[in-house]
């Protein structure tokens, strides 16, 4: 907690004029403000409790197998919406693995790609770009951060997906898998590419900032030893910026994890577990990450089983986001010990 140099205590706060009344009023203000803070705390605790409480039935009916594979997720959701359980299972039967796998795939690939591109872009901005070029590229990257997800989704579904459909997926490939799934351009590739563009600005901005904060003495020292600019950045500056890059990656992952709208529009709508063993077709198979699933089933939330299942998915997302924050905090603390600032 940050306070100024004066410790807050009754003595210091007692004014020379105004006497008891002013001190009382001061205390009242503190209580009011504290109540506001407490109210927010209460709301958030209520949110956590609600989400987990409503998620519980879905978990209790499925146990740990909730996270596992089994059956067709879409069929399971349909069964819940129609309140007609599939033969041999309860209406709550749900196996979320295809959704989890879809989330892991899109998030993982998007973050990995974005990291590489972001580091290159940040190095470009801080080291290689001449001033006039930098003045153009810097705002351009920040502008990318301002684009709302639904706009990305729109571009994806109206421009990128058809392009992928007609130019990257051959007719032969479509026919070879028709009996299992339709390939129509709304798939892993499109989703991952757009998601990557969405998290790029965060990564670039934080990495560029960290590179600029590297002490110039190190850069000068390395250049004076006859090491060229790129190797200097690679071995000294980026190394010094590592904690910031890790923090940025965690932020980007959290952002990707929570992205519902764009993915709902673009990733294919089918709860299909894309199989890497399918070779190149793997990249064109539809996926549906967790957050997008909630959004796409938002109509049927008055239905009990559906509601419990959606809350269960929400609980998984919340826990993941919280764990990411915790990881980020722990990483920054650990690396701070080696004298590298974040």
């Amino acid at each position: 907690m940050d306070r100024d140099s004066l410790t807050y205590d009754r003595q210091a706060a007692r004014p020379a004029r105004g006497g008891r009344r002013a001190a009382l009023r001061d205390r009242r203000v503190e209580i009011v403000l504290g109540a506001a803070a407490f109210a927010v705390l209460a709301i958030i605790v209520a949110m956590l409790v609600t989400v987990f409480a409503r998620a519980w039935p879905s978990f209790s009916h499925n146990g740990l197998a909730w996270f596992g594979p089994g059956g067709d997720v879409d069929a399971q959701l349909r069964a819940m919406q129609q309140l007609q359980p599939l033969p041999g299972h309860s209406v709550y039967w749900f196996r979320a693995w295809p959704l989890i796998w879809g989330t892991l795939l899109t998030t993982g690939l998007a973050v990995a790609l974005a990291l590489v591109i972001a580091v290159l872009a940040a190095v470009f901005l801080t080291e290689f770009a001449p001033a006039p070029v930098k003045r153009v590229v810097d705002p351009a990257v920040r502008l990318l951060a301002g684009v709302p997800s639904v706009v990305y989704g729109l571009i994806g579904i109206l421009a990128i997906a058809p392009f992928v459909n007609s130019h990257l997926i051959s007719q032969h490939r479509k026919e070879s898998v028709t009996y299992v799934v339709q390939l129509n351009g709304a798939d892993l590739t499109t989703a991952t590419l757009i998601l990557m563009v969405m998290i790029l600005p965060i990564l670039v901005a934080i990495t560029a900032d960290a590179l600029e904060s590297v002490p110039p003495a190190w850069r000068e020292g390395s250049l004076a030893l006859g090491v060229n600019r790129w190797r200097t950045i690679w071995r000294v500056s980026l190394r010094a910026a590592r904690p910031a890059i890790i923090a940025a990656t965690i932020l980007g992952t959290a952002r990707a994890l929570g992205e519902a709208v764009m993915l709902a529009m673009v990733s294919g709508g089918r709860g299909f577990a894309a199989n890497p063993l399918d070779g190149l077709t793997f990249f064109f198979e539809p996926v549906r990450p967790l957050a997008a699933t909630i959004l796409q089933n938002s109509e049927g939330l008055s239905n009990q089983p559906v509601m419990h299942t959606m809350y269960a998915i929400g609980a998984v997302l919340l826990v993941s986001a919280a764990m990411l924050s915790l990881t980020g905090w722990a990483v920054r603390r650990r690396l701070g010990r080696y004298g590298i600032q974040t």
Binding site: A37, F38, V40, L41, I44, V45, M47, L48, T50, V51, R54, A254, L257, G258, E259, A260, A291, I294, L295, S298, L301, M310, Y311, G314, L317, L318, A321, A322, L324, S325
Partner: peptide, 22 residues
Amino acid sequence: VESSVEIVGGAPSIVLAIFGLG
């Protein structure tokens, strides 16, 4: 209070949405 504000900041908006509906 600090932690809870951070949790809200980190929660995906879809989760906040279904919480709100509830």
